[in-house]
Structure formats: C-alpha cells, structure tokens
Design a protein around this nucleic acid. Sequence first.
DNA 1: ATATATTGTAACCATGTTCGTTACAACTAT
DNA 2: ATAGTTGTAACGAACATGGTTACAATATAT
Lengths: 140, 140
Amino acid sequence: MQFSSRFTIATHTLLCIAMFQEEYKVTSNFLAGSINVNPVIIRNILGQLSASGLVEIKAGVGGAYLAKSADEITLLDIFKAVEKEEVLFHFHENPNPECPIGRTIHSVMDSKIDTIQLAMENEMAEITLSELLDEAKKNM
Amino acid sequence: MQFSSRFTIATHTLLCIAMFQEEYKVTSNFLAGSINVNPVIIRNILGQLSASGLVEIKAGVGGAYLAKSADEITLLDIFKAVEKEEVLFHFHENPNPECPIGRTIHSVMDSKIDTIQLAMENEMAEITLSELLDEAKKNM
DNA sequence: ATATATTGTAACCATGTTCGTTACAACTAT
DNA sequence: ATAGTTGTAACGAACATGGTTACAATATAT
C-alpha cells in the first residue's frame, strides 16, 4: 500500500503557486508543465485544495492563488485535502465474538491504531508550506 | 487510501497463537474461525509472518507457533511482514527539471517524507504483542 | 503402506482505486 | 463574439484487495 501521488502533486502545486502567483497566471497547464502530468489531474487536485480552503481559483479567466499565507498551510492540511480516508487502517469486519480474542480485538487495537495515526499526523502538522518554500529557494 | 486489513488480521492471528498455542493446535481453520475470513487468506498471511521469522508453521501436521517471545514482537514487525512497500508515499515520477520548483521538489520533500514515515514506524515499534495480550486478558 | 488432516500455491473472479486521456459545457475578461 | 480556462463526465489500462475452489505436497497415526 502506498499513498497516492496526489499528496506530492498537491504539495508541488502549492509550492508553484506560492512561488509564481505574483509573477505569472498559474493555470492548470502551467502547473502540468512543472509537475509533468495531465492538466486534468491538476484541475481535480486544485478542486480538492479549493474545497479545503487552501487555494482560490479564478473560473473563466484562470489562475490559482493561495487562500492562506504559506505559513498557515501545513502538510497535514494538504494531506487531508487530497486523501479523503479518515481512518488509516482497515480493520477486518467481523471477528468472532465467541472467541476470547475475537471479542476483545477491537477494544485492544483501536486505541493503538489511533496513536499510530496521530503520530504521523502530528509530524505532518509541524511542517509548513513556507518552510518548504524557503528550502526550495535555498536550493535554487 | 487505507492499509490493507492484512495488518489487523496478522495481529489478530499472532494474538490467537500467543493465547492458544499451548492449549490447542492453532491451524488456519482455527484462526479463520476467530477472525472470520477464508482459511486461505490466513495461510497466506501466516506465510508472510513465517518468512519474517515471527511464527513457525508445522507443515503436514499443522499448527502455528510463535518463533519469538511475545515481548520481542512489535506492531512494526507485523506491519513490515505484511506490507511490503518500503516507501509509504508515492512520488510523482518526472517533475520538470527546467522549472525551479520541479528541479528542487525531491530534495525538499524527501527528508520530510522520511521523517513522517519514521514517526509512524517509531510509534509502531513501541507496542509489543505481549502488551496487547495482557490487555486482551484483562478485557476477558 | 494407507488414510487423514493440514499446509502451500495456483488459478480465477469481482470490486475498487489510481492514473491517464479525450471531450465538452460553463465561465469570464477582452 | 472570441479566446483561454475551468469543471466534470466518461472511458480505459493497470494494479491491489478480498474471496473462493482446487489440488499437490507433507507429516503423523493407524
């Protein structure tokens, strides 16, 4: 299992917008050129980012803009915008309640699973878009 | 995106083995009864757990046994046994090197992604099978 | 030796997701 | 009106998941 590339594409997208929104009109075609995927994929992801309040899109005339400042956007915001699954681990549905383990497996594992998912999300929440932007500028 | 239920099934499997291996012959049919899935699925997962050195399986006669003590088996061991993907995040393949962002996106994001994945794995490494077993016994 | 229970695999199917693509209606500034 | 762009639907290929049947290989017990 891997997370879809939507996450890295969305992050790339937001970095491009942050970098170029004052200089160019950042369209799905522009972004598709930098990311090297089909423009429709970009439009779909931009739609998800827009629905989550991370970008604003000018319909008709075209162009995407950050809806928040780059230091208010974290990797967790981006991740949640494009990965709609709220629960990371798929639990098998029907453990047998007549088995002592089957009966208790949920109450034993659920809290552990939550802890694991939270550890990942907390780490994501620590990293902001402006941090990535600074590093990108440094590497240029 | 969700992790496959192989992880929770494998954990359930190991808990059953730890709990019952001295009292019963724990076969794929026995386990399938507690977990409520097809025995072939159990056999496949047992095969992965065996390949990772977590269980021993008696061919012919049947029965699965822990290959390590329960406090030496962590959720990370189980996770790695059944989820073969080494890298959690799928990066888009060909960012455009002629774009300043496309050129630097990998060097900027790779270390962040590693950190995130490590946060999750470290949390998994903290939880042992014997810990889960104790809690299950308490809840019985 | 034979019978029995079990494991290890292969093969197949249905379903769902991802990624890519084409096509086109709707929108907005000029 | 025109042109460029967005939003979305529809389709296809590839792959993963979860389920099932079938059967050869294995090892114990009789």
